[in-house]
């Protein structure tokens, strides 16, 4: 019996789409999925040389490792503070620059400029400012205060949060500005006619329309918070003061020490944690933006 024409067309479309997807699928498999499987495998063996299966022993050992726990705490704290701050401040800046204010274009360029400054230069400037004999301490001491070792004390996380915000606010701000410009005018005008205040319009309407962008900005900020390691490493080296010791330090140093099993176990744990965070963000985004999509 001859198959209906729509079946044939559907099959052909599926084949065509599979063909188009194949390169991406191959790339993702080759560069992400297969290496990840190798990492999982290494996390379950005594070492990559003998490859003796040890079950979850590497994970048990890892979760008892004080350095890993310290790095995990620091990374969580840093991302927990820096990411919400980045989202909130960039949204505030975008809203401010969305209005007709003087020097709007210059301010936009000002906030974007850190993106094009090389990391080494950023670090140099930061060292000049925050070194124990740096500009900030000189200023404090000139004003009669006592200098602080900003990079080797409890203040060090503040310094890197500031560095992270300085570097990333501009990018997030541009994303929010684009999203603000794309909000349809009709519902806003309808709300104004109904007598809604600007605050109500922002929180009840604009913010809802911005939910997908907020979600995207949050994910990107999270990713960028991990990238802050580069600057921290250049500022403080392999073994920084304990509050600056991030998971990337742990992984970098563990790799250099040829301790692949510990490194792999840490990568798997980190994968699970990030998956959980991103899953939570998706759930939140679904909840917040569902009625608008409908």
């Amino acid at each position: 019996m001859k198959k209906p024409a729509h079946d044939r067309i559907g099959r052909r479309a599926r084949r065509t789409s599979a063909l188009f997807l194949a390169p991406s699928f191959l790339g993702v498999s080759l560069f992400f999925f297969i290496p990840f499987c190798v990492v999982v495998y290494y996390s379950l063996v005594a070492d990559p040389i003998s490859r003796r299966f040890v079950g979850l022993a590497n994970f048990q050992k890892l979760l008892r490792n004080a350095a890993f726990l310290q790095a995990g705490r620091n990374t969580l704290l840093f991302s927990g503070i820096a990411v919400p701050l980045a989202v909130a401040l960039s949204l505030a800046l975008a809203v401010a620059l969305d209005r007709s204010i003087p020097l709007k274009s210059q301010l936009r360029s000002f906030f974007l400029s850190p993106l094009v400054v090389p990391a080494a230069s950023v670090v140099l400037v930061w060292q000049v400012i925050f070194h124990r004999s740096g500009a900030l301490n000189s200023l404090i001491e000139a004003l009669g205060g006592t200098g602080v070792d900003w990079l080797k004390s409890g203040f060090s996380q503040l310094v890197i949060v500031a560095l992270y915000l300085w570097k990333n606010l501009g990018y997030d701000m541009v994303l929010f500005m684009a999203a603000l410009a794309a909000i349809p005018k009709e519902p806003l005008e309808a709300a104004q006619i109904d007598g809604a205040s600007p605050t109500v319009i922002f929180f009840r309407l604009k913010l809802r329309y911005l939910a997908p962008t907020t979600f995207f900005v949050t994910i990107m900020s999270l990713v960028n918070s991990f990238k802050a390691f580069r600057e921290i490493y250049l500022l403080t080296g392999d073994y920084p003061f304990e509050t600056l010791y991030m998971l990337q330090h742990f992984m970098n140093n563990t790799f250099r020490a040829l301790d692949y099993q510990k490194l792999s176990a840490a990568a798997v744990v980190m994968f699970l944690a990030i998956t959980a965070v991103i899953g939570l963000l998706f759930w939140l985004e679904g909840r917040l933006g569902k009625d608008l999509e409908q």
């Binding site: 990492v39 980190m270 994968f271 991103i278």
Partner: peptide
Amino acid sequence: KKLLALLLALAMPLTLAACG
């Protein structure tokens, strides 16, 4: 979307963990 998220999560530790 969820698949993309999964891959994104997958990619992050892998950029940190050097695997041979």
